[in-house]
Amino acid sequence: MNYTFIALVENRPGVLNRVASLFRRRNFNIESLAVGRTEDPEVSRMTVVVDCPNGEMDAHKIEANLYKLVNVIDVQDVTHQPSVTRDLALIKVMVGPERRAEVNGLAEIFRARIVDVAADSVIVEITGTEDKIEGMIELLRPLGIVEMVRTGQVSMTRGVNDGVRRVPGVNGSRYDDVSELAEMTP
């Protein structure tokens, strides 16, 4: 099953490499990885979707190992949390003028948009959940997809985050009243 993690990381050179290397080293498969800036210029945000064949056990492992990276500030496993999830795809379909209307019709149903029209092709832009995008792709495929690009999934939990830094094994799902436990002693 796929698990989704949000990681806030220090915006420093090489951090993406560290995260990617961790997944390779611990033998996990990344399904999708999206990185971008946040409201704080010193912090970047990653949404990582990972295949976890052993379910919660793997998810715990990933969360704990991400925390071990010195530049990782916060990790949240949002798989089972109410959240908004989006992916964006650009899909180039091989259609001449005679079948453009067909594509247009599909796009309307999926609330997608045609963002470029050439003599023998159009580019469709679609935003939504995995499922929705997959659905659109399936319907466009018979028309002839020539090129496609996807951003990878980005996620955000609903409501206001409680701000508690979760340390697996300490305040995982069962225990949650331990925000003062983390102590710095340089």
């Binding site: 220090e10 530049n71 340390v167 331990v178 436990l181 983390a182 102590e183 710095m184 002693t185 340089p186």
Partner: peptide, 18 residues
């Protein structure tokens, strides 16, 4: 005088209930 490592906070104590 001090280090600034927002993501690096070794835990010292374990929670009482555990």
């Amino acid at each position: 005088d001090e280090v600034k490592l927002p993501g690096y906070q070794p835990v010292m104590h374990s929670p009482r209930n555990l």
